[in-house]
Design a protein around this nucleic acid. Structure first.
Lengths: 213, 213
DNA sequence: TGTATCCGATACATCGATGTATCCAAAGGG
DNA sequence: CCCTTTGGATACATCGATGTATCGGATACA
């Protein structure tokens, strides 16, 4: 049982096992989808028996949740880093480029993340967690856009930096959906940059337009 | 066996059964998610035995595919209708409103559609079908936008009516993702309209901006 | 209305996944 | 270096889902 009673000991072996299981699970989930993966498969991929699994997790859902939390945290840090990277120069287009690279880096992650979305869509508690994670991301973007106010003005329709940040997330989600189908990461990045440019500029200082397909 | 050999007879009963199975499956899929539904459950919900199922479908995947094709076709028709509705007056904002109502009508459909996306993301053949359906939708939007050229000018960044139509789809997908988590259809509609307005206008003739959360 | 055909129900055999109980090995503390 | 505690392996019992083979009632058509 993966109970959290009184923390008897930390045990180096345990954390290794847990990490291995999570890593293997990521690969298996990405390849086959959460709904089509058995506990057995995860264990086999990780090189453990089911005993190890039940010693670390109570269910496949629990593992999935832990996996999501871990990876989502990493991404959030990377995005925050990419946004904080330029101190006082406040170059929005450059920030857009960097964030785009981070967000559309790993197709496997997008697959797992979408599985998790589907999962969350039917479990309010999970949905809450996912919404909170998204809100952290959005906060970072909104703050960054607010810092840039004056240098680049945002379209009024969106309602300031807060609304614009929502739009950035929506664009990300929209491009992700498409990317899951055509698997063309480079194109998706270009397209996301283009979309964000269209959303975040007032239509005055446009860079060159591309084909957009 | 659900074989399509030589069409022996049509049999009224058969089509009813098939339709009932599809309808029940829709409800069950929406409620529990494709990955967590058994053939048995679908049959029970429809009031049939598993014999009826295997007589009409070869697998749950096959049924799921048929279900998606059917419903997606309906939606596509509705969207095309909403776009064609105004003949020569070419009022883009009004068209945006109508299409938004249609696209964000039924939360259950969005749930099933997202399940299907996840499914397609791991099966190139299915992905192809989904991409084709999306392309039909996009075509309708692009044509409509092209018709409106001159009345409302599009931002150059997006690359004409074609690019703008891509953006419309992306916005729809982005808003859908959020909607799956917060389940607030009314808010999603307002937000999608706002997004589309921001995308499709050049920032000149903005209507009033809203809070955007 | 008779009859050939079709459709769906039932029963059965099988398989895979789950969870648990028990046992052996490996850490870590003294 | 022993010995207690912890972690993971093995074996087992069970359950649910799948697919198929077969049977009886319904349906279409003459």
């Amino acid at each position: 049982m993966a109970v959290e009673g009184t923390t008897g000991r930390v045990t180096k072996r345990r954390v290794r096992t847990r990490a291995n299981l999570l890593e293997a699970a990521f690969a298996v989930f990405a390849a086959k989808g959460f709904g089509r993966v058995s506990i057995e498969e995860v264990c086999e991929a990780a090189g453990y028996s089911r005993g190890a699994f039940y010693s670390n997790f109570g269910s496949l859902d629990e593992l999935f949740f832990a996996l999501y939390a871990e990876r989502a945290g990493l991404i959030a840090d990377q995005v925050a880093g990419a946004l904080a990277l330029d101190g006082p120069d406040l170059d929005v287009p450059a920030a857009v480029d960097r964030v785009t690279e981070v967000l559309l880096l790993d197709l496997d992650w997008l697959l797992v993340k979408t599985d998790f979305l589907v999962h969350a869509a039917r479990d309010p508690a999970v949905a809450q967690t996912l919404l909170e994670h998204r809100e952290r991301l959005r906060r970072a973007v909104a703050d960054r856009l607010a810092r840039a106010a004056g240098h680049t003005e945002l379209p009024v329709v969106l309602g300031g930096a807060e609304g614009a940040a929502h739009a950035v997330i929506a664009a990300y989600d929209g491009v992700t959906t498409r990317l899951l189908l055509d698997k063309d990461v480079e194109h998706a990045r270009a397209w996301l940059k283009q979309l964000l440019t269209a959303l975040l500029t007032d239509g005055s200082d446009n860079p060159a337009a591309r084909s957009g397909g």
